Amino acid sequence: MGKPHVLVAPYTVQGHVIPLMELSRHLAKQGIKISFVNTEFNHKRVIHAFGKNVDETGLFHLVSVPDGLEDGEDRNQIEKLTESLCQVMPRLLKDLIHKVNASDDDKILCLLADINLGLALDVAAEMGIPTVAL
């Protein structure tokens, strides 16, 4: 068995992504492998803001999934965004977990999720993965 591996899933609105990212980066410095899952929209924003300086450890990996909204749709409409996430995110998270666990010696042992992203906690419970909610 390799390093402990945590999947981190923030709620996809301003003020939720960066705090979990900072916590995740600190966990990576402690030797914990992190897969930080963002929506594709936020993923682009994070890459633009941090560039290549996101990971100093080799243990912090950014991954992304679609949010279900079309290009140009207003992601500031929280109700619409949340509804879309509830429709697409459970399947996408399951697929991501299966993909990582099938191709990586460091299996996902825990899901660290924003409490506002309860659907991620439901997916982890369904898959038998321990969770931590912030």
Rank of each mutant, 00 (worst) to 15 (best):
P10C: 01
G51C: 06
K52S: 12
L81Q: 00
L117K: 00
D122A: 06
I32W: 01
I47F: 12
I34F: 03
A102D: 10
L7F: 04
E83A: 15
D104I: 13
E22T: 11
H16W: 07
Q14H: 12
E40H: 13
G128N: 05
T131F: 06
H98I: 14
N101A: 01
K44C: 02
A102M: 14
G72Y: 10
L69T: 09
K33T: 05
F41R: 05
I18N: 14
I47N: 08
A28K: 00
L81R: 03
Q14G: 07
N53G: 06
L81G: 06
M89R: 02
F60H: 12
G68V: 02
H98A: 15
L20G: 00
F36G: 04
R25N: 12
L23W: 02
D104V: 01
F60E: 04
G128F: 07
E40F: 04
K107Y: 13
H43P: 09
L112D: 00
G31S: 03
R25T: 00
V100K: 05
L96C: 04
I34E: 01
D114P: 03
G2M: 06
R75D: 11
L93G: 09
A9N: 03
D106W: 04
T57G: 01
S24G: 13
N101P: 13
T82Y: 13
G15K: 11
N42H: 12
M21E: 01
S84F: 05
P130K: 08
Y11H: 09
A124L: 02
L85S: 09
H98E: 08
E73V: 04
D122C: 09
E56G: 13
F60T: 00
I129D: 04
E56L: 14
N76Y: 15
D106E: 14
K99T: 14
I47E: 06
P4E: 01
V46D: 09
S24L: 02
A9G: 02
I115E: 15
M127V: 05
D74E: 01
C86D: 14
S103C: 05
I78C: 11
H61C: 10
R45T: 00
T12G: 09
I97Y: 04
L121K: 04
K33H: 05
P130H: 14
H43K: 05
K52F: 05
T82R: 12
K44H: 03
D114N: 13
V54P: 09
L119V: 13
A120P: 00
D74Q: 03
K29V: 11
